[in-house]
Simulated scan of single mutants.
Amino acid sequence: MFNKDFSSHEKMGENASILTDILEIEGFEIAPEFTYPLFFLLLFVYSTLLFSNICVLTLIIKEKSLHQPMYFLFCNLSVNDLIGNTVLLPQLMAHVLSTKRFVTYNQCLLQAFHSHTFGSASHMILVIMAIDRYVAICHPLRYSTIMTNRTVISLSATAWGLSILLVSVLIGLTVRLPRCRSLIQNAFCDNPSLFKLSCEDVSINNLYGLFFTVLCFTCSIGGITATYIRIALICWMKKNKELNSKALQTCTSHLVLYLIMLWSGSLTIILHRFPNYPDLRKIAYILFHVVPANLNPIIYGLQTKSLRDTITHILRRKTVISI
């Protein structure tokens, strides 16, 4: 059925509008001997991030001692990682095993929407976490009055709301375009791959995409740079070993993870302008999704004393019960 549809549409002129809702995904060119190793690698990565993020979420929800603003931010990050990767990885694994990679236009739009929302929300949530660290380190006595549950919920709702609004406009500008092609030149669906299906003028899409990217990166880089400079100045002026140790422990891990996300995200955007490196762009995009999602529970979970102590206490309690 799919092949018949594509054969008929290939005969159409490139400027003709395509009415079919079936799109073909280009995917990766994988040698047969690497198909199953790659599939099981992706399955392992996906299973690991599912297990670790769900465990962190469950622990924070169940343990009343962890019902604090900082851990609510952890929940935001874990939920975002779970949604973003669940939209991407299962379909990608299915396409690794298949030589015929097809998806409906609506499914493609949904994947692109969730994928871009994931990227935008990741930046904004990390900025809120940087602010939380700044208040905790620089104003420890006022932390409980500044970072209340209500404040964190409001900041989180703003981050999600802005992400959804900005991405909705991004995808909406693409939906309005007629399509003259049916091949997604990517291993997954994202906005640039979707509007490249059109033979119409896409300058508005490019301009808004540039605005969206600049706004997202400016807010995240500016916010995190400002908070870290302020933290560094406070640590330098006070010269308190305990304060410096706390700042180094909490901020280094946050900064490393942010730089990994920023690097892989920037590489994906830049490589869309260089079509000669399609596989590198696809790999960078997957790394942007899976690397932070696997590191978040370790960096923000196990390196946070209260959460680490809770995990240790539960494990010891289970060991005693089993004995």
Rank of each mutant, 00 (worst) to 15 (best):
F6T: 10
S8H: 09
S8L: 13
K11F: 05
E14R: 09
S17E: 06
I22M: 10
G27P: 03
F28T: 05
E29N: 09
I30W: 02
A31N: 02
P37Y: 01
F40R: 08
L41Q: 03
V45Y: 08
S47P: 02
T48M: 07
L49A: 08
F51G: 14
I54M: 11
T58M: 06
T58E: 09
K64L: 11
H67Y: 03
M70R: 14
Y71E: 05
S78H: 04
V79R: 07
L88G: 02
L89I: 14
L97R: 15
T99H: 08
F102K: 02
L109P: 05
A121C: 07
H123Q: 13
M124W: 06
I125D: 02
L126C: 11
A130D: 09
I131A: 11
D132N: 15
P140A: 00
Y143K: 14
S144D: 13
T145L: 10
T148H: 12
T148W: 12
V152H: 02
A157N: 09
T158F: 15
A159G: 00
L162I: 07
I164L: 15
L166R: 09
S168C: 10
L170W: 06
V175Q: 00
P178N: 03
C180W: 05
I184W: 04
A187I: 01
A187S: 13
F188Q: 12
K196M: 13
C199N: 07
C199S: 08
D201E: 10
L207N: 15
T213P: 05
V214S: 01
F217Q: 14
G222F: 08
G222E: 11
A226M: 11
Y228E: 09
Y228F: 12
I229N: 04
I229K: 07
R230I: 01
K241C: 09
E242F: 04
N244V: 05
N244M: 11
L248T: 07
Q249D: 06
T250V: 05
T250K: 13
V256M: 12
L257N: 15
I260C: 01
M261T: 11
G265Q: 03
I269Y: 05
P275G: 00
N276A: 14
L280F: 10
I286V: 15
F288K: 04
N296R: 11
Y300N: 14
L302D: 12
K305T: 04
L307V: 04
T310H: 02
H313S: 09
L315P: 01
V320I: 15
